[in-house]
Every structure is written in C-alpha cells, then in structure tokens.
C-alpha cells in the first residue's frame, strides 16, 4: 500500500514531458499535414528531399522563418504559444501543414 502511495505521489509530481513531433518533407510535401500538440512541445522537420526547403509561418502572433533546411538536414520549431499555426515552405507555395497547439 505504501509503495502504491509513493508511486501515485511521484506520478502527480512529475511534470508532463514535452513531446517532439516529427514531420517529414518528401516529394515537396509535409507529412503529416496536421498535428495536435501542447505548448512546450517541439516539431522537428526532416528534409528527405534532394532540394532545400524553408519552414515559414505567416500566422499572426506566430510568424517565423526558420531559414533554409538543406537536403538530409532537419530543423526544430519550438511551440511557445497556443493557437492554430499554418506552416508553409518559402520555395514551394503549395506545401502546407496545420499545427493546433493547446495549453
């Protein structure tokens, strides 16, 4: 019983770990094209294409340009605020990803 109580207290005291969501870029498309995440999580974009891509977010209050991600490289987007974030690619206007971030 005591062990159970200690385990329960530890579980309550341990903060939820931030998650890393992986998005692949292949064939000039994001996969997946929709993510649900929490504030504090990160999104890792892995460029599996032979050409460069650039993660770009025009959404008000979240706007950011992560610059060029070379072929075979990856880049990380920290999710600092809740909201609906629309991700695009600078070079390829058709590429799209929606990230829904909650508290």
């Amino acid at each position: 019983m005591r062990k159970f109580l200690i385990a329960a207290m530890l579980a309550l005291a341990t903060p939820a770990l931030a998650a890393e969501h992986v998005v692949t870029i292949s064939g000039s498309e994001y996969s997946p094209t929709r993510i649900t995440a929490k504030v504090g999580d990160t999104v890792r974009f892995v460029n599996e294409d032979a050409v460069d891509h650039a993660v770009f977010i025009p959404t008000l209050g979240h706007a950011i340009d992560l610059g060029s991600t070379k072929s075979g490289a990856s880049t990380v987007l920290p999710l600092r605020r809740a909201g609906r974030i629309e991700v695009e690619c600078v070079q390829h206007g058709h590429m799209g990803l929606l990230i829904v971030v909650t508290q």
Partner: peptide, 14 residues
C-alpha cells in the same frame, strides 16, 4: 506582422 528570424546570427525580427 512581425516575423522572427532565429536562423540569423544575431537573431532578427522582420
């Protein structure tokens, strides 16, 4: 709008 550029050293905001 304001667009962060964390890839710039030092960081910039557009």
């Amino acid at each position: 709008n304001q667009v962060e550029r964390p890839d710039r050293t030092p960081n910039q905001i557009r």
